[in-house]
Each structure stands twice: as structure tokens, then as C-alpha cells.
Write a protein that binds this DNA or RNA. Structure first.
Lengths: 340, 340
DNA sequence: GTTAGCAGTCAAAACAATTAAGTGCTAACA
DNA sequence: TGTTAGCACTTAATTGTTTTGACTGCTAAC
């Protein structure tokens, strides 16, 4: 394992590099971090740290920069995890204590606040809703050929969708729909609105087979819809020197545009935890220059989705993680207070 | 006015510059556009065209590039306006003839298609809905403290919103709400859901004053909401050489982020027309490097919003305008066919 | 194990020279 | 009067060269 001095040197390099975005030299560490040894000693240790993979060197006559492995060690072992000011706490509180009607709105507020405070791009994705349980399904006739379906789930989400038909439908058909849907599905997870259920409905409503298919299709579309990625502050990254190079900037925007990759990361995190994905630790090579930090939020034991931050690997992990922890705590508090 | 040769030279410069993004020289015009004169003559004309403001010169020993005024002349007088292929027409048709449930969805499809074909960033904004007339308002009780309001308008739009209360509400209250709202507002424009109406409701429902305010607030919020900007292909612009410079790219993304400026432009266009805003013709200095082309679409005489394209001033106006014209026509056809 | 000190390395900056592209102007021409 | 050939002039871009400055790595002494 690393001796104490090496740890301090690694920490110094990570923090200095996070601040300056410039390779860190033995001399500057001596100056700014008051080690009790000479620069030559630091150099020796740096060579060692590079050897075991914690540091990289852009070229022979430059200082060192942390590798992904170096950042990882920093995050796991060296982090100061209370890097958040009173003003920031105050600000987060004021934002999150707003009254909202839908959980999703609160998620958005949290996401925006996170971006405001950290100046990184933030992301949010709704839960994989399939497993949420249906509390109630309502059908409302909006016109002679227009029907609205509203589904309430035990995670407090409300999904509504509109279905149009080529021919008139009657209130008694709607009442029948309502009865059958609720009778069969209440208490079941959303993914029970499937093939077999469609068959069942076909049987039950023999005369009016044509209305079933579009309804079920449209409902499923609405359920899937909110696995959409919500993004905030996508062009804040242009403030960071690593994005001065067009191809990095572009690559970044492309990653955000692709979505699948980012969604995959967001969905893969552990609940009850801050998850950190650093650069090429990642399976997706598109992300090798970026780091992502995520957390899930919950209501009871229901997954409500994931909020994340994405930025250069040279990310201020200390600040990001501290702020995230606080927002996560506050958000879960807010969700748990019976509003939903 | 410009003589014929000058027009041809201007046209050549604009088209060549649109294709190559390089300043255009007298020699290259001679080569590629077969004028019946020498390069010296072209140079003389170019000097003249520069003098009256149609051309700019990056520096003494470079060719010319069009100024905003030059593009303007090109757009107004020299455009070939049928710059669209059969395949493109076919593709647009296939896209726009999809069956959708809400007008908004069709707008999105049109916006996406426009971006796909032109490779520029496209924008869409909903109508200023205030003047749309209310056809029906429904209230649905989703839970003992949760109410959903659904408003149908004569422009085919459906707005729904959820309102939560601190105390239980009853079905009879809801019925009463429903009756009063419809009785007073049916046939009226959306902006009649205002202060005086709130007063009126307060009077009518004396006992239950507390429910009125949140309902009206929430409905108004929902109405305003869809003046939101819809964006497609924001990072396609990185393909264009003018965006190789970080500050231009950044400026572009900032403009899209600010929204007010873009919304202002989108809303300011004439209906029944393709509107072209070129570079610094524009009042907003943030847009001096960009051009915007817009059109409104309608149902009957109802405004349904505006679709636009934004890109560098060196935009392929000919293609953009041709495609827009076709999409506009097709979209209005589709809207008018009684689906909504 | 630590350190002073110095040779060696390399990127970045500064400078200079060359090249290539294109104009503007003049003087001749139709 | 409009057009043209031709050449001097301008400028950005390219290429090559030198200098500088910031570090490291290593050696030898402590």
C-alpha cells in the first residue's frame, strides 16, 4: 500500500490538477503543499506513483497528471467529503422545499440546482417504470372519438395519454374499459399491460375489438416515454479548458445526444449510494474522457430514477460528491414527507 | 440597380461560398461559372459590389465573401426556389403522413424531418395559445386530494394539468367546478381564465374558496408551458467549418440556451410566408453570425406555432427555403384534412 | 532513505524566410 | 467607354530554425 507521503503527494497532484488543469510539477507541490522533504524526493515518489499506474506524464519534461486509477484512489481514499458551504446548503434547501405537484418536477429542480452549484452538466432519468404498481386507471372521454387514459402508480407518478379512434366510442364502452382494466390490473406492475392482457381484453370485449389495440399501444408508449433523458447545462462544459479542443467538445455533445450510453450508465448504479464512473474505467469507449457521478432517489422502496453529473475526468469530485450527498439526502427527505 | 453581369457574379460568389466556405476569387468564378469576360473585369465588378455593400473582403489578398446585404439580395432576387429532389419529396411525404394523436406530434415530426434533410438545427415553438378558444374543460378526480384538469381547444390542442390540495375534495365540488367553468368559458379564448374569472369563481363557490386559486394558477401555468422551444439537431452545426472556432460554437449554443431571443424571432414572422433573418440584419446582436428561416403553420385561421431553421449566415438558402416551402405546404394539407 | 545539483528532454514561443493566392492599378486596346 | 493583359503589391499560411523555460531523471554525496 502507499505510504503516507505518497498519499499526500497523490492528493496534492489530484487537487492541484483539478484546480489548474496543468500538469503538476514536483516544485509546485513543495511550494503549495508544505511537505517536509525536497523536490527530489517528491520526484522519486512521483516516479514510483507513475510506475504503479496512479499518474501519467504528457511528456518527459512535463509534470504529472492523475490517471483514471489515480482519480479512483483519490475518490475512494483521499476525498474530503464535506466540501460544501453554508450558502450552498441554504440555496439547495430553498430550491428543494418548493411545493410541486409531481415528483418529476422535484427531480428537475434537483437536477437544475445541482448544475447551478457545480457548474457541470447534469442529467436525470426517470425510473424504469415497469415495476411500479398500478393504483388506478381512469378513462375519460374527451370527444366522440378521443379518449384519455390516466394511470396512477404507487410511486406517485401520473401518466396520461390520448388515444384517437376512427369511429365513435360510447360512454358505456368507456365504463366497461374502465372496469375491466382496473379489475384486472389494479395492484399489478405496469408491465402487465402486455400481450396476454391484450388477448384477455379482446375476449372480454368481443364486439369492440378494434378499440383495444390502439389503447394498449398508446399506454405502453406513454409508459416508456419518461425513460427520456433530462439534461441541464449542456454547454457549461465549454468553460473547461479540456473542451477548447473542438473534437472533445463535439464528442461530448455526441455522447449526450446518443443517450443510450448515458442511460446505460445512469441505470447501472447501486441504489442508496453515490456511484462514480471515471474515464476509461468505463466500458463505453465514448466516455473515456469523461466522468459520471450518479445517485438514485427513492420513495419507500420504489425507484424514482437517477440523477447524474457528467464532466471531464478532471472533475472536482470532492465538491461534486459533497453536493450530491446533500441533495440526495434532502431530496429523499422531501419525497418522504408524505407529499406524494 | 445591378446590371446583369454583376448579378451573375454576385450569385456565383454566394453559391460558391455556400459550397466551399472559402473566399471566392475572380479566377474561380471565371473557371466555374463561364462568364464571357476576363478575370480583370470580374475584379472590377467585385470591387464595385463591395463598394455598395454586397460583398466583404477578409483581407487584401483574399477573395470576396457575401455580406448580409449580399445574401439578402440573393435571397430576394436570385434564388432558385425548386432546390429539392424527388427522393426528398418522397421522404417528407412518408414522414408527414404518419398518423398522430396530437398536432404537436406532427409539428415535431416536421421539425425533425426538416433537420434531417437540411442538416441544420431546427426549432419549433407552439402558438401563443391565449387566443385559442376553449371547447371543453373536464375535471377528473384522481385521488381524494388530486385533481386533473383537461382543456380542449378549437386548435386541436389538449392541455392537461394536475393540481394537488392540502385537504380532501369531493365529487360534488368537482361537478360544480366543471359546470361553472364550462358554463362561463366555453367558446372563450384561453386568456379569459384570468383575475376577473377567479373573482367570479370565488363568488360562485363561496364555501370552497381555497380550491379555486391553485386550480387557476396551475391551468395558466400549463397553458404557458408549451411556448417552450423544441430543438432538433443542435450539434449538427459542428460539421460546418465556421463552428471550428470554439467561440462561435459556444456562442451558438448559448443563443439556443437563452431562448428568449430565438423565441422572439420565431414569433415575429409573418404568417403565410417564409421569413428569412440574415446575420446582423437582426436586432439581436447575439445572432449576428447566424441566419434564421421560419414559417408558421395554421389550422383554419388558428396559429399553430412556428418552425424554424438556424445556422451560419453561410446557409444554403436555396435548399432550405425550397424544403421549407414543401414541408409547410404538406403540413398545412395534413392539418387541414380533418384529422383535428 | 534523502538530497543537492546538474545533464538531458521536450513543448512552446519567438523569429525569419518562403510560398501561394489574389487583388488593384496602369496602360493599352476595341 | 468598357474591357483586358500584366505586373507590382499585400497578406495569411506554411515551413524551418532558434531560443527559452519548465521539468525530470540520475548520480554522487550525505
Amino acid at each position: 500500500m502507499l505510504d503516507n507521503r505518497k498519499k499526500r503527494i497523490l492528493q496534492a497532484i489530484v487537487e492541484e490538477y483539478i484546480n489548474t488543469a496543468e500538469p503538476v510539477s514536483s516544485g509546485s507541490i513543495l511550494q503549495n503543499y508544505g511537505l517536509e522533504c525536497s523536490s527530489a524526493t517528491i520526484r522519486n515518489d512521483m516516479a514510483e506513483l507513475e510506475h504503479i499506474g496512479y499518474l501519467d506524464k504528457p511528456h518527459t519534461s512535463a509534470g504529472r497528471i492523475p490517471s483514471a486509477k489515480g482519480y479512483r484512489f483519490y475518490v475512494d481514499e483521499l476525498l474530503k467529503d464535506d466540501d460544501i458551504s453554508l450558502e450552498e446548503i441554504q440555496y439547495i434547501k430553498s430550491k428543494l422545499e418548493t411545493k410541486v405537484n409531481e415528483i418529476e418536477d422535484l427531480t428537475k429542480i434537483a437536477t437544475n440546482t445541482l448544475s447551478e452549484i457545480t457548474h457541470y452538466t447534469t442529467l436525470a432519468v426517470g425510473p424504469r417504470a415497469d415495476r411500479h404498481n398500478i393504483v388506478d386507471i381512469k378513462f375519460v372521454l374527451l370527444g366522440s372519438r378521443v379518449l384519455m387514459a390516466v394511470i396512477l402508480t404507487d410511486a406517485g407518478a401520473i401518466k396520461e395519454t390520448i388515444i384517437k379512434f376512427d369511429e365513435d366510442i360510447t360512454q358505456s364502452q368507456v365504463d366497461n374499459l374502465s372496469f375491466l382494466f382496473n379489475n384486472k390490473l389494479r395492484g399489478m406492475p405496469l408491465d402487465k399491460i402486455d400481450e396476454p392482457f391484450e388477448q384477455y381484453m379482446m375476449n372480454e370485449m368481443k364486439g369492440e375489438v378494434k378499440v383495444i389495440k390502439p389503447i394498449i399501444e398508446q399506454i405502453n408508449r406513454a409508459i416508456v416515454e419518461n425513460t427520456n433523458l433530462y439534461l441541464e447545462g449542456a454547454n457549461k462544459v465549454f468553460d473547461f479548458p479540456e473542451f477548447k479542443k473542438m473534437d472533445v467538445a463535439r464528442n461530448f455533445l455526441n455522447v449526450l445526444d446518443e443517450k443510450e450510453v448515458v442511460l446505460d450508465i445512469l441505470n447501472s448504479g447501486m441504489a442508496e449510494d453515490i456511484n462514480v464512473y471515471i474515464g476509461d474505467e468505463n466500458e463505453h469507449s465514448e466516455l473515456k474522457d469523461f466522468s459520471i457521478v450518479t445517485f438514485k432517489h427513492t420513495l419507500g422502496n420504489k425507484d424514482l430514477g437517477t440523477i447524474g453529473i457528467i464532466g471531464p475526468t478532471r472533475m472536482d469530485y470532492s465538491k461534486v460528491i459533497s453536493v450530491m450527498k446533500y441533495i440526495s439526502k434532502k431530496l429523499n427527505e422531501q419525497l418522504g414527507n408524505g407529499m406524494f
